[in-house]
């Protein structure tokens, strides 16, 4: 996407509107009566919107562009947010969102490359950042301008491979790689701090040689600024630790693991849409 030529406030407003559409798209993809990972999709919706509609160089009309930026949803269960953004960006018709997870659908329960715009298969947690390292290495080797953005979950950081990837990115000085940690603080079985505490996430990445940024993951100004700073780094990768709220935007689903993977009834769907419209 080419960067819109607007004043900053107009830009932020347009991105907030995109984030709203991503959230509505998540609700569409979830449908009625089907379980889906709504909580973690909602928590990263603002970040996903900022990536697809502000930061990333990409186009549905030039999907094979070797210089396109790559996005990887390492916490693959939150793919509903990516599907909503891809539909909004024109990679496929918005009507396809309603088929998510149905038999034979283009939109599987976790990201697969068969979906237009999806760059990597993820879902087995902890692998997306490594795939991003590979893409960033290829970009460097070929002298390409492409950048790689990876969203990981805070609970996902328990996967040791994330830290193997963090070491590799540091060793190779991958300044074309940015990781955004969606710190919604809740994983499948409960609060991350209670289940398996992973303290001082920015400090951990800093210790691995990454430049770190701490932001409010629902403040569009914060998100845009951090993405700009991370993409301007030289010689080291950037990690954006984003404080978020699980289920953000659906009031009754916020800040609870009950909506990590849950369904909406027809009535709840209407309430959810009203809640998103009221943000």
């Amino acid at each position: 996407m080419s960067r819109p030529d607007k004043t900053n406030e107009e830009l932020l407003d347009s991105l907030r509107e995109k984030a709203r559409r991503v959230r509505l798209g998540i609700i569409d993809a979830l449908g009625i009566g089907n379980r889906g990972h709504v909580g973690g999709s909602m928590s990263c919706a603002d970040i996903v919107a900022a990536l697809y509609f502000y930061k990333m160089h990409h186009s549905p009309d030039n999907r094979g562009d070797p210089d396109r930026d790559r996005f990887i949803m390492s916490k693959g269960h939150s793919v509903l947010a990516q599907y909503a953004a891809l539909a909004e960006a024109g990679y496929f018709d918005k009507a396809v969102l309603g088929t998510t997870k149905s038999l034979g659908s283009l939109l599987q329960g976790h990201p697969e490359r068969t979906t237009p715009g999806v760059e990597a298969n993820t879902g087995s947690l902890g692998q997306g950042l490594s795939i991003g390292v590979g893409m960033a290495l290829a970009g460097k080797a070929d002298g390409r301008s492409c950048r790689v953005y990876v969203i990981v979950g805070d609970g996902e950081l328990a996967e040791g491979q994330v830290w193997e990837a963090a070491m590799a990115a540091n060793h190779y000085g991958l300044d074309n790689l940015t990781v955004i940690i969606d710190m919604n603080g809740i994983q499948a079985a409960g609060r991350t701090r209670d289940r398996y505490s992973i303290q001082n996430i920015p400090g951990r990445f800093a210790a691995f040689g990454w430049k770190t940024f701490e932001i409010d993951g629902h403040d569009m100004a914060d998100i845009v600024k951090a993405l700009d700073m991370a993409s301007a780094l030289k010689g080291c990768p950037g990690a954006i630790a984003a404080r978020t709220v699980k289920g953000k935007g659906i009031a009754f689903a916020e800040n609870t693991h009950a909506y990590h993977n849950n369904l909406l009834t027809a009535e709840e769907r209407e309430k959810a849409i009203a809640s998103v419209m009221a943000i």
Binding site: E119, I131, G134
Partner: peptide, 12 residues
Amino acid sequence: NMVSVAAGLALC
């Protein structure tokens, strides 16, 4: 990590 990095390289 090595295998997943290889996946990323192959994707490019």
